[in-house]
Amino acid sequence: MSIKSEPHAGNLCNLQDRVAVVTGSSRGIGFEIARVLASQGCNIVLNGVSNESAIEAAAETLRQDYGVDVLCCFGDVSDASVTADMAKAVFKKFKRLDVLVNNAGILDDGLLGMMTQDQINRTLDINVKGPINTMQAFSRLLARSPSGSIINISSIIGREGNRGQVVYGASKAAVIGATYSAAKELAAQNIRVNSIAPGYIKTDMISAVPEDTHQERLDSIAMKRIGQAEDVARTALFLASDLSLYVTGQVIGVDGGMLI
């Protein structure tokens, strides 16, 4: 029996000379995904709406630490003209795109009967229209890549739901629906489309969670620890890299076995 040699996993993770757009990447999960991809040699396009100095600082960190090329694109991805301009800027600088990570999103809880129209619209605009706009703007550029990959960040709430999170849950379920459809539509162009559904992850987004609620959530996690942004980023690396060349239309939970 012959032994088929398997490439070293490190080689399969190698993203040298590739280009990734990560939306909402000035901090938190978005920055960590950008950092982990950059650590494998991937050039990065950072994006954020506000705090331009934080994004520029994040870019400088990636350049210094990993020697990759970094482009900063500012603007709200729920605005289609912003994503169209981003696509042109990426094309002008890199002439290619291999990975699109739709991470930009907001969490704005509210009970039924207490949510304003502005709250509802803003959450749906950023969390749903944003990823759709970027997929529209970038899919043709991704089609030129030998291994294009779109990674949409959803949430465990989009799969399981939660009290006080009707709009957020609806928006994240929509991300999963968009992922399934885009996977079918773009497979012929060799673009993989997958989603990550994080559970309870330590980020600024959850800093306002009261202590008793925090403990309640920790108790609901089978692995008995809060998730780290790096846990999500490593899954994104799997989906961005050639380790997942035949994986599309999937939702991967990164939640330590959390039950809601």
Binding site: A87, K88, F91, K95, R140, L141, A143, R144, Q189
Partner: peptide
């Protein structure tokens, strides 16, 4: 569209 963009190196 993809073919034209590739041929003319544009978006």
């Amino acid at each position: 569209v993809a073919g034209l963009e590739t041929e003319f190196d544009c978006m």
